[in-house]
């Protein structure tokens, strides 16, 4: 089973920052550096990511969610280890 984690991450990002919808995302760069995502945006992004994936995301894991590539890897790992 391969889930579309990239789609999940993008949906979460675009729902907190709808003005970014359609923007190209550099997978290695942090959302913060690319799109001026601030703390409130980021918290709302994590909330949506958690809801969409069904994973409880503790606060200490936040640094692993800062870029598209890292967030996808995180979801893969957490889903895989369930």
């Amino acid at each position: 089973m391969t889930e579309d984690f990239e789609g999940v991450v993008k949906d979460a990002l675009f729902s907190v920052a709808p003005d970014l919808e359609g923007e190209k995302i550099d997978p290695d760069k942090t959302f913060r550096d690319q799109f001026e995502i601030d703390s409130i945006d980021f918290l709302n992004f994590v909330i949506r990511l958690s809801k969409a994936s069904g994973i409880d995301i503790p606060e200490e894991d936040y640094p692993e969610l800062e870029s598209l590539q890292d967030a996808v890897a995180y979801l893969c790992r957490r889903k895989g280890s369930k």
Partner: peptide, 17 residues
């Protein structure tokens, strides 16, 4: 804040702001 947030679901966590 970290202690307080640890026991809360993500949607109820606080930012230091």
């Amino acid at each position: 804040l970290a202690l307080r947030n640890a026991e809360r679901a993500v949607e109820h966590r606080l930012l230091y702001a």
